[in-house]
């Protein structure tokens, strides 16, 4: 489980942003996590609780937007979600594709802070 390392990176990022932009009382941290990022949503939520205990982020929570895997099919000329994470091919014509359009995201999108 490397989600604790990921959470510590998120906390660092929030620390930098808070200092640079004078933010206090972060209530919600909005994340984008791709299904192909190698990071597990539940483990991330668990690690967040653990890492924030006793810190100024203790009352905050994570809001995770899960980004589906999308590939480009060179045969159909369109972006599509493959049948599964272990079948990287077009769901319509079954042409294999290694052109990944989305699904690897691991981003802090925004913070909700006290107004």
């Amino acid at each position: 489980m490397h989600e604790l390392s990921i959470v510590l990176s998120i906390i660092d990022e929030i620390g930098d942003e808070s200092e640079a932009r004078d933010l206090h009382d972060v209530e919600v941290v909005h994340l984008k996590v791709g299904v192909f990022s190698g990071v597990d949503r539940n483990a991330l939520l668990f690690a967040w609780e653990l890492a924030c205990e006793g810190t100024p982020l203790e009352r905050s929570h994570l809001d995770i937007e899960t980004v589906p895997l999308v590939i480009y099919c060179a045969n159909c000329h369109q972006n599509l979600t493959p049948p599964s994470l272990y079948q990287l091919c077009c769901p319509e014509c079954e042409t294999p594709s290694q052109t990944i359009i989305s699904g690897r995201e691991l981003e802090v999108v925004s913070l909700e802070v006290a107004a």
């Binding site: 990921i6 990022e13 925004s110 006290a114």
Partner: peptide
């Protein structure tokens, strides 16, 4: 208490990247 949204748009592993 009301809240406001602050855009960040940062890759979580940007230091590593």
């Amino acid at each position: 208490m009301s809240t406001r949204i602050v855009e960040v748009r940062a890759k979580i592993l940007k230091q590593n990247d």
